[in-house]
């Protein structure tokens, strides 16, 4: 087989021609939005299971004698919602060239996110039922666990952004590395509000 690169014609083959940009949306942002669409559907499959268990099978909610810690989870919700504002602040800061604001915003967001996860683990250990306790326990741990995994992924992405922020990488013109994990973080946040409303409040 003749190899692709043995015959350089025109000599312009060490670098690709610059691709035409045929959309106003840039590729990384669009990629993240499509990934989020896919993630929404993954949550959708878990919510479908929730719907079947609660509506079709008519499971007791919450299963006697267990109780859902609505208040603690409510405080946790407030913590996560606050973190959406801090990540927004970080992004606005770097857009204006304020590196200290970017770093502070990212660190605050990380701290709030970690607090949320730790509270969630604390809740798991105190709540008194396991995933094997009826379909109720299964769905509770399934949905909150899936969301927790997403918080973990979001925190990992934000940690990378934070490392780069402290190494002086972002500028008012180039801050995709903050903006795109930020979109994901907002998604994680909004998803939690839905999870909290359906699992705890409804």
């Amino acid at each position: 087989m003749s190899a692709h690169s043995e015959t350089p014609h025109g000599g312009g083959h060490l670098h690709p021609p610059t691709a035409n940009q045929s959309s106003r949306v840039d590729a990384p942002t669009l990629g993240m939005l499509l990934f989020i669409a896919s993630e929404v559907m993954l949550f959708g499959s878990f919510f479908t299971a929730y719907f079947f268990v609660r509506v079709n099978a008519g499971a007791e909610w919450p299963l006697e004698p267990f109780e859902l810690p609505k208040f603690v989870a409510g405080v946790n919700t407030a913590i996560l919602v606050t973190s959406s504002f801090t990540i927004h602040w970080a992004l606005q800061s770097i857009k204006r060239g304020n590196r200290a604001g970017l770093q502070a915003g990212l660190v605050l967001t990380l701290a709030l996110g970690v607090t949320f996860l730790l509270t969630q683990f604390r809740e798991y250990s105190r709540v008194g039922f396991s995933p094997a306790d009826g379909a109720f326990g299964t769905i509770f741990y399934g949905l909150t666990g899936l969301h927790g995994a997403h918080v973990f992924v979001g925190l990992t992405l934000l940690t990378f952004a934070t490392i780069r922020a402290f190494r002086g990488h972002f500028t008012p013109a180039h801050h995709h590395g903050v903006e795109i994990p930020g979109i994901y973080w907002h998604f994680v946040d909004v998803m939690w509000i839905v999870v909290y409303a359906t699992i705890y409040l409804l």
Partner: peptide, 17 residues
């Protein structure tokens, strides 16, 4: 693996789901 009850009817699961 984890003995959850998504599709275990006896535990409130919904197999047709």
């Amino acid at each position: 693996v984890m003995h959850t009850n998504f599709f275990d009817f006896a535990e409130g699961g919904y197999p047709l789901g």
